[in-house]
Computed example of a mutant assay.
Amino acid sequence: MILALLNQKGGVGKTTLATHIAGELARRGKTVILLDADPQGSALDWVQRRAQQGLARLFGAVGLPRETLHQEAPELARRADHLIIDGPPRIAALARSTLMAADRVLVPVQPSPFDFWASAEMVDLIREAQVFRPALRAAFAINRRVSTTVIGREAREALADQPLPALRAEVRQRIVFADSAAAGRLVHELIPDGAAAREISSLVDELLGWAA
């Protein structure tokens, strides 16, 4: 599976989800390559922090923020069970190249009206790509949900009007995700039996079923 995480809006938690999806797949015995297509290189920074602390490498990581990504990604994918692409925000040409490489696209959205409105540009790019690649499938993933807010509770209803489905699994706003980013670790490594680890596990379960 080549899974791309994309949203033209920044700050929606793409890198956190990408590293945790890759890490969870690796924990399950799969070979994984994480492709960082964001020029900021945040996913590679996370991998480097991990290496600096002497932690075991979970998966391969490659930086490839180029518009030729769709030509190079398939070769990388042949070396692993799963290729996870942490896509760029606000760079339409690079996003298009990522879409042409992917089998599945996950669009992380925070439960806020601004995020829902901003997702329209990403939806347009996906539908454009599906003209050339009809088998390409895409879905929203509700991320950083604050369950005590009204908009958090109504996020799924708000997404019902969108042309893409939303995964059932949701990831809530939790401090442990920020701690994991700073430490170069997975939430499972910090709090193995915690709610955050269970949410990531549920998300990966659903992704694997979706990819089958």
Rank of each mutant, 00 (worst) to 15 (best):
Q8N: 11
W117T: 14
S147F: 00
R96Q: 14
A93E: 14
R174S: 00
G87C: 05
D103T: 12
R49H: 02
E157Q: 13
L17V: 15
W46D: 11
Q53L: 08
Q162S: 07
T16V: 12
N7G: 04
Q130V: 07
E75R: 15
A155Q: 04
P65G: 02
R50K: 07
K14P: 09
G209W: 07
G194E: 08
L55A: 10
D161Y: 01
G41V: 11
A139I: 13
P89G: 01
P88W: 05
A51S: 12
R127Q: 14
P192A: 04
A102P: 09
D205A: 01
R96D: 08
E157C: 00
R27S: 02
R174W: 03
A166I: 10
S119H: 09
F132K: 15
T98E: 04
V62I: 15
V32A: 01
T19F: 00
M122C: 09
E67V: 15
S112G: 10
I191T: 15
P88Q: 09
R104L: 08
P108R: 10
P113A: 11
R27N: 13
A80W: 06
V187M: 08
R57H: 02
F177S: 02
G29N: 10
Q110G: 02
T149D: 02
A196I: 10
T149P: 03
L106C: 11
V47L: 09
A181N: 13
V32F: 03
G10E: 07
E157K: 15
R198Y: 00
G10Y: 10
R168L: 01
L208M: 15
R133D: 03
H82L: 06
V105R: 14
I91F: 03
L186E: 13
R137I: 06
E121A: 12
D38I: 14
G13L: 06
E170S: 03
F140G: 04
E121G: 06
V187G: 02
A169Y: 08
L69H: 12
D179G: 00
I84R: 11
P89A: 04
P134Y: 05
A37T: 12
G13S: 03
V12P: 08
R145T: 08
T68Q: 10
H70N: 13
P88S: 08
I200K: 10
G41K: 12
F132L: 11
Q40K: 08
A129K: 08
G184F: 05
T16I: 04
H70Y: 08
A141R: 10
H70V: 00
A212F: 00
V123E: 13
F59M: 13
R127N: 09
M100K: 13
I84P: 07
L190A: 03
G194C: 02
D124E: 14
T31W: 02
P108L: 01
N7R: 12
V12N: 06
G41S: 05
T149Y: 03
R66T: 15
A212P: 14
A101M: 06
V176G: 01
G29Q: 09
A18Y: 05
R172N: 12
V105K: 12
L76Y: 14
V62Y: 05
A43T: 11
R104I: 10
G10P: 07
A166F: 03
I91Y: 08
M1L: 06
G152P: 06
S202C: 03
F132A: 12
A211P: 07
V176A: 01
Q53C: 00
A160H: 06
E189H: 10
F114D: 13
